[in-house]
């Protein structure tokens, strides 16, 4: 079967100029500039099938956004080949653009001074939708996102979460076959993050849309993506099953504890590897399958003020992946 997205040796460098601090730095930069090349994406290869959801993870500055921008046609690649739906994205053919969408957590396409519905309506014309198609699509999105009340409010006055819902509606109104989501849940509270993830899943199932989403947090992708791609410093280090990634490189979770009464280190040791200890505070590394068991054990044995379970930081996972790669 023909792949819906295929990327070969994709490469992008940025030239940034370096300036020393202060006025003197600015002055000297005015006369003589020092340029530095940032290798944002280096010879990346991957392919995707229709209907797949793939998660891109990597720390900040890894090259995730740059990759999505090349896939959607915003940036001209320096080298390599990209094909999306059989098009070369950078040519930005109308037929191509009307079948994709890129949503960026940090940028907005909505008209800030007007209610979001006006931006939707503008997109109806931009994408040549019939009135009926538009109505059906809008109604379905509004319902899925539970956004009936907010689309008539001035965008400027919406909370970040509400705005993100509107951003998604504006981007999906034309029912794109491919959806690129760049950190769509960044800065949102946990409840809304969960809702949006559920929505993305539903959308994928309902329309068989192909979706790439990025995150610098593993937990974001757990419920959504069977397959993940890990990049760091522009290099692709892992492409495969989410489960095996976890098994191989992110077996552990961290439990952070705050106690009401002082505890003894020895008593805590049996629960996991202690990575941080003060009489009233501790951090433990625990196998992810055992987290529930361990947490309830601790809650029974000690008087706990606060308990917090988190994924391994992405930097740590990435370090392990790339170390492992070098050994093989």
């Amino acid at each position: 079967m023909k792949k819906i997205i295929s990327v070969k040796n994709l490469t992008k460098n940025f030239k940034v100029y370096h300036k020393k601090q202060g006025l003197i730095g600015s002055l000297s930069a005015f006369f003589k500039r020092k340029y530095e090349t940032v290798k944002a994406v280096q010879k990346i290869n991957f392919e995707m099938n229709k209907g797949e959801i793939v998660g891109f993870i990597g720390p900040n500055g890894a090259g995730k956004t740059t990759t999505l921008k090349m896939l959607s046609g915003l940036l001209h690649p320096d080298d390599g080949e990209v094909s999306v739906l059989g098009f070369i994205p950078f040519k930005r053919k109308k037929d191509f653009l009307s079948q994709i969408s890129l949503v960026m957590g940090q940028k907005s396409q909505l008209w800030w001074d007007l209610p979001a519905i006006e931006s939707f309506n503008l997109n109806r014309m931009v994408y040549n939708l019939s009135k009926e198609d538009y109505k059906t699509s809008l109604a379905s999105l509004v319902e899925m996102l539970d956004a009936k009340d907010i689309i008539h409010r001035q965008v400027r006055k919406l909370s970040l979460g509400q705005r993100m819902k509107c951003e998604l509606i504006a981007s999906l109104i034309h029912n794109p076959k491919i959806l690129f989501l760049d950190e769509p849940t960044i800065g949102l509270d946990v409840v809304i993050q969960k809702k949006l993830r559920k929505f993305i899943k539903e959308y994928n199932e309902k329309y068989n849309a192909t979706i790439i989403l990025t995150s610098h947090y593993i937990g974001d992708l757990e419920e959504l993506c069977k397959r993940v791609v890990v990049i760091n410093d522009g290099i692709l280090g892992y492409d495969g099953d989410f489960g095996s990634l976890i098994k191989k490189y992110a077996k552990l979770k961290t439990i952070k504890l705050v106690f009401l009464k002082e505890v003894k280190k020895e008593n805590l040791q049996k629960y996991g590897k202690i990575i941080d200890f003060e009489p009233l505070k501790a951090s433990l590394e625990v196998n992810r399958e055992k987290v529930g068991e361990v947490a309830s054990g601790i809650l029974n044995e000690f008087s706990v003020d606060d308990l917090n379970i988190s994924e391994m930081p992405i930097e740590e996972v990435v370090r392990r992946i790339f170390e492992n790669g070098n050994n093989e």
Binding site: K69, R92, K107
Partner: peptide, 12 residues
């Protein structure tokens, strides 16, 4: 500031 993005992504 990169806000040209959304104009470039539209089929118009």
């Amino acid at each position: 500031n990169g806000t040209l993005d959304y104009h470039l992504l539209k089929p118009y």
